[in-house]
Amino acid sequence: QTIHNGDQTYHYDNPEEAIKVAQKLAKIYNLTVTVKGNTVQVH
């Protein structure tokens, strides 16, 4: 599972963990989380 947060990319073995982290980032920075296959984008 990969999270793209602007210019930063994070890799997680656990998809659920990746989505949790993405949602935390989204709340902190007031962003949107988009899940596309194995990629979670925060923008």
Rank of each mutant, 00 (worst) to 15 (best):
24 K>E: 10
27 K>H: 07
23 Q>Y: 05
29 Y>Q: 15
39 T>R: 04
10 Y>M: 05
9 T>H: 07
39 T>V: 12
27 K>S: 08
3 I>G: 11
39 T>C: 13
5 N>W: 14
30 N>F: 10
1 Q>N: 11
1 Q>A: 13
20 K>T: 06
14 N>G: 05
42 V>F: 03
4 H>M: 08
3 I>P: 10
7 D>G: 09
21 V>P: 00
38 N>F: 02
36 K>V: 14
23 Q>G: 06
38 N>Q: 05
5 N>S: 12
38 N>L: 05
30 N>S: 05
12 Y>G: 02
7 D>Y: 14
42 V>Q: 01
34 T>W: 03
9 T>Q: 08
23 Q>H: 09
42 V>K: 01
32 T>L: 10
43 H>Q: 06
21 V>C: 15
31 L>E: 09
39 T>K: 04
3 I>E: 11
1 Q>T: 12
18 A>E: 01
11 H>A: 06
31 L>N: 05
32 T>N: 10
40 V>R: 00
38 N>T: 07
29 Y>K: 15
4 H>K: 09
43 H>T: 07
3 I>L: 11
29 Y>E: 15
15 P>C: 12
20 K>V: 05
26 A>I: 09
27 K>I: 07
2 T>D: 13
6 G>M: 11
3 I>D: 12
36 K>I: 15
10 Y>E: 02
43 H>W: 06
8 Q>L: 13
3 I>T: 11
30 N>Q: 08
11 H>P: 02
19 I>N: 09
31 L>G: 08
27 K>W: 05
33 V>Q: 00
41 Q>I: 15
9 T>R: 05
42 V>Y: 02
41 Q>W: 10
17 E>P: 00
39 T>P: 00
1 Q>V: 13
18 A>M: 03
28 I>Q: 10
15 P>S: 06
37 G>W: 02
19 I>A: 11
6 G>W: 14
32 T>Y: 07
40 V>D: 00
11 H>G: 03
34 T>N: 03
27 K>A: 09
19 I>D: 04
37 G>T: 01
20 K>F: 08
26 A>G: 06
6 G>T: 10
41 Q>N: 08
31 L>P: 04
4 H>D: 07
6 G>A: 12
10 Y>T: 03
34 T>Y: 04
15 P>M: 10
4 H>G: 09
19 I>M: 14
17 E>V: 10
27 K>D: 13
43 H>Y: 05
38 N>D: 03
40 V>C: 02
30 N>A: 05
5 N>D: 12
33 V>S: 01
22 A>C: 08
19 I>K: 12
15 P>G: 05
20 K>L: 11
2 T>W: 07
34 T>V: 09
32 T>M: 10
1 Q>R: 11
36 K>E: 12
3 I>A: 10
38 N>E: 02
7 D>Q: 07
7 D>C: 15
14 N>Y: 04
32 T>E: 11
6 G>V: 10
10 Y>S: 03
28 I>R: 07
9 T>G: 03
15 P>R: 06
32 T>S: 09
31 L>M: 08
3 I>V: 12
24 K>P: 00
29 Y>F: 11
31 L>A: 10
27 K>V: 06
13 D>Y: 04
6 G>E: 10
26 A>E: 14
43 H>D: 03
15 P>T: 07
1 Q>F: 08
9 T>S: 07
19 I>R: 13
30 N>I: 05
26 A>R: 14
10 Y>L: 11
13 D>A: 13
8 Q>W: 15
37 G>F: 03
27 K>F: 08
19 I>F: 11
39 T>W: 06
3 I>Y: 04
11 H>W: 13
40 V>F: 01
35 V>C: 03
33 V>R: 00
18 A>G: 01
